[in-house]
Design a protein around this nucleic acid. Structure first.
Lengths: 231, 231
DNA sequence: GCAAAAGTGTTTGGATTACACCCATGC
DNA sequence: GCATGGGTGTAATCCAAACACTTTTGC
């Protein structure tokens, strides 16, 4: 029935790749590592590694991200799966990409295990990466943009407290368009943003008020009021 | 560095599962097969099977769908990947789900290989399926609904020529809401629908005009005019 | 004529756009 | 004072919802 013995199917491995996005200095950045191991030694890459045979995929993503970059407790979501027969020189390796958004300033990055370095790289400056990682990164970025339109995930990468202009600029960057300030603010009126008492400091213009996003209020608005995020 | 030898990673298999959606009698249906093989013998399942070690994923999806159901030349798109360690009783098997929409009347379904039967099952009547296939099916249906809003894929499951009401009813079914006829027609005004000379036959009311969707015009509108489908 | 669905027009209110203007701070 | 960005109001326009109405077929 099969062209090969059933046991010959069980000769593949699979990996997870963790695409971590962050936002600072007006740019979206991805967390990359430099490989200190064959193959593609010294190439930059998305943090990722082989999954143990009895390990669940989300657990593997957490473990591997921690081993390579020191990041802990980052909840990731599945992106796409890449499985070209020759994408990995050491054998058949399917990779499942996961992604997450984090606040760059909330975490300390520390390369370890076989990662020689780890750093945030602006999406504008991505070099040639190991394996098919350029493709993985750009296809995951497309997914991110799609989610930015339909879910309030931008607040996972903005500072805990942000100005409305920072909020706006993130969308202007992602969708490569300028937005009208007044209209943007009207559009976000329905969102549960809580103003804080504090304002920007040390700016040579009127300081902006700082806001934070109320996740609780958002969840209950979705449940009770059928609220839908759309930007 | 690893807890196991590198070669012990290469002990997994992976499969593709092909979620095929169709539309008839006012209901969205999925193509299911009855398994004639261990495990889950006689259970209904999404058509799927193991991928050969050197086979690309989209090729495998095409091959497997053809082997089990006789369907040929169905272009599928990737959905999600499912990889719980114990989802398959015979070993570690990751599955990548693919999906496609087809016109039920355009194809003849014929169970073969280890598929005992193959049939279209309304999404309202899905039984308990083999493996985690219920989960795969419902998560792929969510993806389908999302795409129905943003891409003109509904025309892949509607008859080649359809009435505007059939078009509307598909969306009413998928999103479980009734729509105003006049408003729906205003909304679809920008779409490149070509009226045919023919009309409905044998209905005991005014026959509706039949339309078809002009993919060429759509593509060029997307390119030249930055047109975006949204329903 | 009547039932049933096809097909179209009008009104209304809310959202989106474009744009103008005032405000608070550092220097 | 002035440069700089923060912050808000208004009018014009577009769009979506609600609803009413006319048309064409089979019986």
């Amino acid at each position: 029935m099969y062209k090969i013995e059933i046991n010959d199917f069980f000769t593949s491995a699979f990996s997870v790749d963790c695409v971590i996005f962050g936002y600072s200095d007006g740019e979206i950045k991805a967390l990359l590592i430099q490989r200190g191991m064959e193959p593609y030694t010294h190439f930059w890459a998305i943090p990722g590694d082989l999954v143990y045979p009895s390990e669940d995929l989300p657990d593997a993503a957490q473990r591997i991200l921690h081993e390579l970059t020191g990041l802990e407790n980052v909840e990731m979501h599945q992106s796409r799966t890449f499985g070209s027969p020759n994408r990995h020189p050491q054998g058949r390796v399917i990779t499942i990409s996961y992604f997450a958004l984090i606040r760059i300033s909330d975490f300390e990055i520390k390369a370890s295990s076989w990662a020689e370095k780890a750093m945030w790289v602006s999406l504008n400056d991505i070099p040639e990466l190991a394996f098919d990682h350029n493709q993985i990164l750009s296809s995951t970025y497309e997914l991110l943009k799609q989610k930015l339109s339909n879910e309030p995930i931008c607040f996972e990468m903005l500072e805990q407290r942000f100005t409305l202009n920072e909020f706006q600029q993130l969308y202007e960057y992602a969708f490569d368009q300028t937005l009208d300030k007044a209209n943007f603010r009207k559009k976000i009126k329905p969102l549960p943003l809580v103003p804080s008492n504090e304002s920007q400091k040390n700016v040579r213009h009127r300081p902006a008020k700082l806001f934070s996003f109320d996740y609780e209020k958002y969840s209950s608005a979705v449940k009770d009021d059928n609220f839908q995020f759309k930007l």
